[in-house]
């Protein structure tokens, strides 16, 4: 049976035009939420147009109108079906106290591997320097020229300098925040290359820290080092490790061990957790950037104990927050 195309189009076109106008309105107003009646009408128009498409395909097979209806149905379909119904979290307190720490704990194994990779790098860096101290100049990256200097000389120089609370601090803080956020995000996304690059980055970052720690301890500048690194490092390093954790979750999804799900499904399962971890890491890095600019670089010996104390409190707070916050209280067991 062949469709009376002309009268079919004449009859149905007003519905298609109405649907098209609604879609255009939704496209132009991103956050627009239709009222119930409008949503019902939209759904009716979508169903009617879908039915028209089926009719046209079955009885007429006319290319141009079919293509038009396909586009219309595709756009309406996409509008009607949210992929998972996820919304931007509008409960920041809930997110901070529950979502973020519980997401971290749910993937604790990835964090342990991330931490191990970093510590392995640090141990290697310190070990390499212990074996051959001349390696120092070769291994310190060019972007850290102050680390090439003999630690005691640097300490002497830094401790003599006046602390200028504002000169260049805002710019330095901003640079640190943006740079560290990029590095952390890179640690995460490089998990896509089966985690090899993530582990390499973690190892190399740990290696630099290992060099520095060994170098300063060897020169008897342990107190300066702790007072310099702990205030911001107690937040910055865990944040970077969170990036590594997210990267290793991606790597796990790439390998697909222990699951029959397809790659798309494996990624869909971890997508929300990745966003949570990277957002959490970014927040921590913003704080670390501020601390590094305004506190860590203030090298006055009388303040060392305060700085170390601050760093320790911060580290303990972070550990407690990530391990305890948002834990559900155990339900009391019912007894007869």
């Amino acid at each position: 049976m062949i469709l009376d195309l002309n009268s079919f189009i004449t009859r149905e076109q007003p519905y298609w035009d109405e649907l098209s106008a609604l879609l255009r309105n939704y496209d132009e107003n991103g956050g627009y939420r239709p009222a119930l009646e409008e949503a019902k009408r939209f759904y009716y128009l979508y169903q009617r147009t879908s039915a028209d498409l089926v009719k046209l395909n079955t009885f007429a097979g006319e290319v141009e109108t079919t293509r038009y209806l396909e586009r219309l149905v595709a756009r309406a379909y996409s509008r009607l079906h949210e992929s998972g119904g996820e919304k931007i979290p509008l409960k920041p307190l809930y997110w901070l106290t529950r979502t973020f720490p519980s997401t971290f704990r749910r993937h604790w194994k990835a964090f342990v591997i991330s931490f191990t990779g970093f510590i392995a790098g640090a141990s290697f860096g310190a070990g390499a320097l212990a074996v051959d101290y001349d390696l120092k100049d070769q291994f310190i990256p060019p972007q850290f020229p102050h680390l090439r200097e003999k630690p005691s000389k640097r300490v002497e120089r830094e401790e003599k300098q006046d602390f200028d609370a504002f000169q260049g601090r805002h710019a330095f803080s901003s640079e640190l925040m943006t740079h560290n956020t990029k590095v952390t995000a890179l640690l995460m996304v490089s998990g896509f290359l089966w985690g090899i690059f993530t582990l390499t980055l973690l190892f190399s970052n740990g290696q630099i820290l290992g060099f520095v720690i060994y170098d300063y301890l060897r020169d008897g500048q342990g107190e300066f080092l702790t007072a310099w690194l702990l205030p911001h490092g107690s937040i910055e390093i865990p944040a970077i490790l969170l990036g590594g954790q997210a990267g290793l979750m991606i790597a796990h999804a790439m390998f697909g061990w222990g699951t029959n799900l397809r790659l798309r499904q494996r990624f869909a399962r971890i997508r929300g957790d990745l966003v949570t971890l990277i957002a959490g890491a970014a927040l921590l890095l913003i704080w670390a950037g501020i601390v590094e600019s305004f506190l860590s670089q203030y090298h006055a010996p009388p303040f060392y104990p305060w700085k170390i104390g601050f760093g320790l409190v911060q580290l303990c707070g972070l550990v407690l927050y990530l391990s305890l916050s948002g834990r559900k209280k155990p339900q009391p067991q019912l007894t007869n």
């Binding site: 379909y77 079906h81 992929s83 998972g84 119904g85 996820e86 931007i88 798309r264 929300g272 966003v275």
Partner: peptide, 11 residues
Amino acid sequence: DERGLSLSFKQ
């Protein structure tokens, strides 16, 4: 979305 659905913010 690769299933023809609309995008979520996470995506």
